[in-house]
Design a protein around this nucleic acid. Sequence first.
DNA 1: CTCTTGACTGAGAGTAACTCTCAGGTTGTA
DNA 2: TACAACCTGAGAGTTACTCTCAGTCAAGAG
Lengths: 130, 130
Amino acid sequence: MYTINEVANFTGLSPHTVRFYAKKELFPNIIRNHQNVRLFSSKDVEYVEIVKALRMTGMSLENIKQYIDLCEQGSDTVEERYNIIRDQQLLAEDYLQEVTQQIMLLRKKVNYYQQAIKEGEENIIWNPHI
Amino acid sequence: MYTINEVANFTGLSPHTVRFYAKKELFPNIIRNHQNVRLFSSKDVEYVEIVKALRMTGMSLENIKQYIDLCEQGSDTVEERYNIIRDQQLLAEDYLQEVTQQIMLLRKKVNYYQQAIKEGEENIIWNPHI
DNA sequence: CTCTTGACTGAGAGTAACTCTCAGGTTGTA
DNA sequence: TACAACCTGAGAGTTACTCTCAGTCAAGAG
C-alpha cells in the first residue's frame, strides 16, 4: 500500500494533482488508515496510471470519470470501455501528428536562426524576421 | 490581408482564441480598417503560426509574449531567440516521448480489451479489470 | 429605402484543470 | 519534549481558453 506521495513519485504527477483527482472520485475504492491517510493498492495505482494516460492524450476529467465508472460496473461494460479507449487512442495518434508538425516548424526556425547567427558573424545584415 | 475568421480557418485556431491572443498583444503591428476590423498581413499570419507552434508544444502565453517582444526588437536579439526556440524544441521532443509512452499504454489496453471481448464470447469469465 | 443577414467588435462571465497556501493532525527521531 | 516530515481538507489563485451578449457596419433583397 502506498501513500499519496509515493504514488505521485512513480507516476510523475504532483501530490496536489493526485489529491485533486481523488476528490473528483477518479480513484474509487481507496481506503484510509486510522489517521485518515489515503492508501493506494496496486490496483488503485493502475487507475492512477490509466487516468494519467487518458489525461495526457487529451481526455477531459469528466469523460475519464465516465470511463472509471464503467470500469467499476464490471465485465458487462467491456465493449463500451473498449470503444472509449480505442477512440481515444486514435485521437491521440492524430494529436501526436499535430504536435510533430509543430515541432518541425520549431526545427525549421532553429536552422534559420543558426544560419542567421553564422551570417551575422560575417557582418552580413540579416533580414529581421520572426 | 486577412480577417480574423480567415486566419482562424487556416491556422486551425478558433476566432475566439485568435482574438484572445491579439488582446494579449501576441500579434504586434496588426492594423485595422476604417470599421475597426483587424487585418492580418502574411507576416502577422507567420506570428500566429509561431504562437500556435510554441503554445502546442507547451510554452505559456507569458513566455510566448517575451519571445514576440524579442522578435520586435530586431536582429540584436537573434541569439536570445535562437536559445528560446531551441530549448523549446528540446522540451517538445521530451513531451512527445511522454505522450508516445501514454499512447503505448492505450494500445496495450486496446489489445487487452480485444482479448477480453473475444474470450467473453466463448463464455470464459474474464477477470474484471480496468 | 428599409430590412435582414452575416461578419466583425469589446466587455465580461464561465469553465477546466490545475496549483498553491494555510491551518491543523500524527508520528518518529534527537 | 521539541521538531521535522508527512498527511489532511478547505479554499483561493492562475492559466488558457470558451462562450455570451449587445452593438456596429456593409451588402444585398424586397
